[in-house]
Amino acid sequence: MSTISREEVARLAGLARIDLTESELTRLAGELDVIVDSVAKVSEIATEDVAATSHPLPLTNVFRADVPEEPLPVADALAGAPSAEGGRFAVPQILEED
């Protein structure tokens, strides 16, 4: 059963913002097919009457004490950035021009 085409992998890679080479696309399509075939067995026992669990030990209304804490100094936050300017992260242009 072939469920994931090369084109589908390319679309997913676009959604995930990962540039893949041609050979990576081909290899991943084959590998993901095998993996998805195998993990699809979850649907065998996941019947409608079973509730979903998202968290192993759910806690509700979790608050910490309402006490101000020292924030991370700006210089520390920027220290690992690829580029910074004027106390801010410097990033490439967000919108494509024409």
Binding site: I4, E8, V9, L12, A13, L15, A16, I18, L20, E24, L28, E31, L32, I35, V36, V39, A40, V42, S43, I45, A46, T47, V50, A51, A52, T53, S54, P56
Partner: peptide, 28 residues
């Protein structure tokens, strides 16, 4: 890369219930 693409697939429209949704039920 393999796992991010697989996760993106499992969470994408049309597949979410069959994969991620079912997996959460198995967890129960």
């Amino acid at each position: 890369k393999r796992r991010i693409i697989l996760g993106t697939y499992a969470l994408s429209a049309g597949y979410y219930d069959a994969y991620y949704g079912s997996a959460q039920k198995v967890r129960t």
